[in-house]
Design a protein around this nucleic acid. Structure first.
Length: 566
RNA sequence: CGGGAAGUGGCUCAACUUGGUAGAGCACCUGGUUUGGGACCAGGUGGUUGCAGGUUCAAAUCCUGUCUUCCCGACCA
């Protein structure tokens, strides 16, 4: 593309309604534009980046043998009723009615419809396995869109689905997709980790997430310093450390702790470390109050709680519920003589003579032990912490933050059973088809790449992602010789299929250099006054070195740089 | 959904406290001087101040409502 008289703009200042490096750089480089909370336009330049990401994924998908198709966005609600996901998606579904008042949703994901599509073909075990995929917009009414393209309400996802006769087949299909994902993210140049994760609203047997490492990531990745353990904190198992404890259990004792409500306050009040306390949190579990006990410096893991109780929804109870259950103001809840189910974190079994709330305003009990109260469950319900023991090898745990860019699920037969997608085996017996589902968020990949690759001047795109691989800066668009050489390089690159920008605007050199840097063009060719000596300059975005290159060799040089990258 | 902040040319902001013709920088147009890292001078275009009501001789400014955006939290495949 030639920039003169063409749709190209950049902004000098950050946008006031953007909150991350990537969203600001993408807006400033003229690639995206927000039009509503969590809704973006992809401008021509940004759309090219998106298409490059799409191309990589499509190529890797096709290598697995999966076939591409295209679904609708407007999906009949009744199908989600059948699969039971109308509830599990809840308020994050965009809903609409047609003129006859028939109900639809804007597709949040397409498991049900791929299951339906597959049933057109599958009749026998001989028809399996196969995989289908699409690139499609997904709609999710996020409570709080954030960080530009990272948490949005409409986004493009590549979603793939595998169909197999049994779990062994699923394992093979899953592995193929898994490898294709690794290949895709490697080609994109994203720094990522793969972690075990919760299956959430998808359901199923296994979920693994591909997480781009970034400080603005919203997921906490639990990693081990001495083995390959990697898990999302929501499912990361905690090991109870052996504690040598010779303390004799004492008799419990009621003590006044006036105005000390939080663990922090009580700990200061009694001059005891937070790890001597057990906090009692009242949770609303599908509408019923439950008490959860964890050590004072631990946090309850709601995913574990939900699984333990086989619940749909787990939230902290409201103040009113807490007060009616404990007969005390919020801050004094304790397990003793409490008439609701009590769930105790495993770690508490190693504690002696701890402090708990007394279910009486302004009072706590000290010297409390497990025998002093009823409990219904003892289980791992806390979040793992940095420095904890690795559940796999005993090493030390550390955290990183991640942006979830991809997710793979072994679904099993949840959807095929709900929608009657069956096949006949050799013995003429009917079985539900076994599914896997696999998603990649394209916009998130784009944002994660910018978060990971930028400097004070702008974006630094990897070659395969950049909207244009080469940018020619024509210093003086009034100089005939310079124009001639720049045009020639441009035309020759076009001929061999290397996409290229030619900045032939009537602007000062500084503007052109800054714009090339801002939009992150990997290879910059400057055609300026050195043309007298038959030279142009080449500079790579990720390096400070400027090379003089003979005009006749410049195409070869560019080809070399691109080949070396591959 | 709870708490907080903010909406003023295409972009970033000022004027609001204390009501009195809406202003700057960037961008854009014209002319000139410049021309290798976001030039300078001169002149210009562009705004019913988010929307609706109210108070007032007079509202960007005060009041009420409403919408939108952002932040913290809740929620989140």
């Amino acid at each position: 593309m030639k920039l003169n008289n063409n749709f190209f703009y950049t902004l000098r200042e950050n946008a006031k309604d953007e909150d991350s490096i990537s969203s600001n750089l993408l807006v400033r480089s003229g690639m995206i534009k927000k039009i509503a909370s969590g809704v973006y336009i992809f401008m021509p330049l940004g759309y090219k980046v998106l298409k490059n990401i799409e191309k990589i994924i499509r190529e890797e998908m096709n290598k697995t043998g999966a076939l591409e198709l295209y679904m609708s966005n407007i999906l009949p609600t009744e199908v989600f009723e059948k699969s039971g996901r109308l509830n599990s998606f809840g308020s994050s579904l965009f809903k609409l009615n047609d003129r006859f008042d028939k109900k639809y949703v804007l597709g949040p994901t397409h498991e049900e419809f791929f299951a339906m599509a597959s049933s057109m073909y599958v009749k026998s075990y001989k028809d399996l396995p196969f995989s289908l995929y699409q690139f499609q917009n997904k709609f999710r009414d996020e409570a709080r869109p954030r960080y530009g393209l990272i948490r949005v309400r409409e986004f493009i996802m590549k979603d793939a689905y595998s169909f197999d006769a049994d779990l062994e087949g699923l394992d093979r299909s899953y592995q193929k997709m898994f490898d294709a994902y690794k290949a895709s993210f490697d080609r994109m140049g994203i720094d990522y980790k793969i972690v075990k994760a919760d299956t959430g609203a998808m359901g199923g047997l296994l979920s693994e997430e591909f997480q781009a490492i970034s400080d603005i990531g919203e997921d906490i990745l639990v990693l081990c310093d001495s083995c390959s353990f990697a898990s999302n904190i929501e499912v990361s198992e905690c090991v109870v450390e052996e504690v040598v404890n010779n303390e004799e259990p004492l008799e419990k004792e009621l003590i006044e702790t006036k105005n000390a409500k939080t663990i922090e306050e009580v700990s200061v009040f009694l001059n005891e470390d937070k790890s001597k306390f057990v906090k009692t949190l009242i949770y609303d579990v599908d509408g019923k109050p439950h008490a959860c006990l964890v050590r004072g410096d631990d946090e309850v893991n709601e995913t574990k709680l939900r699984k333990l109780l086989n619940a749909n929804e787990v939230t902290l109870a409201s103040n009113e519920v807490v007060e009616s259950v404990t007969n005390a103001k919020v801050g004094f809840a304790g397990p003793i003589e409490l008439n609701i189910p009590v769930i105790v974190d495993k770690r508490i079994t190693t504690m002696t003579n701890f402090v708990v709330g007394a279910n009486k305003t302004d009072y706590h009990y000290k010297n409390v032990n497990l025998k002093d109260f009823n409990h219904d469950f003892i289980s791992d319900i806390r979040n793992i912490k940095e420095g904890d023991i690795c559940p796999q090898c005993g090493g030390k745990i550390y955290f990183k933050k991640g942006i979830e860019i991809g997710n793979t699920f072994k679904l099993g037969t949840k959807y095929t059973e709900a929608l009657n997608v069956n096949y006949l085996d050799k013995n003429n017996v009917l079985h539900p088809v076994v599914m896997g589902s696999y998603g990649i968020g394209l916009g998130r990949c784009m944002a994660a790449l910018v978060e990971q690759n930028n400097d004070e001047k702008g974006v630094i795109w990897p070659l395969e992602i950049a909207p244009y691989k080469v940018g020619i800066v024509l210093i003086n668009s009034g100089d005939e010789k310079q124009v001639e050489v720049a045009e020639k390089i441009y035309n020759n690159l076009q001929k061999i299929g290397i996409e290229c920008l030619l900045d032939n605007r009537d602007e000062r050199a500084g503007v052109k250099f800054n714009d090339m840097d801002l939009i992150g063009i990997p290879i910059r060719i400057t055609v300026g006054n050195r043309i007298k000596d038959g030279l142009v300059e080449a500079k790579l975005r990720n390096s400070d070195t400027i090379r003089d290159i003979e005009v006749n060799n410049i195409i070869e040089y560019i080809k070399d740089v691109i080949e070396k990258d591959e």
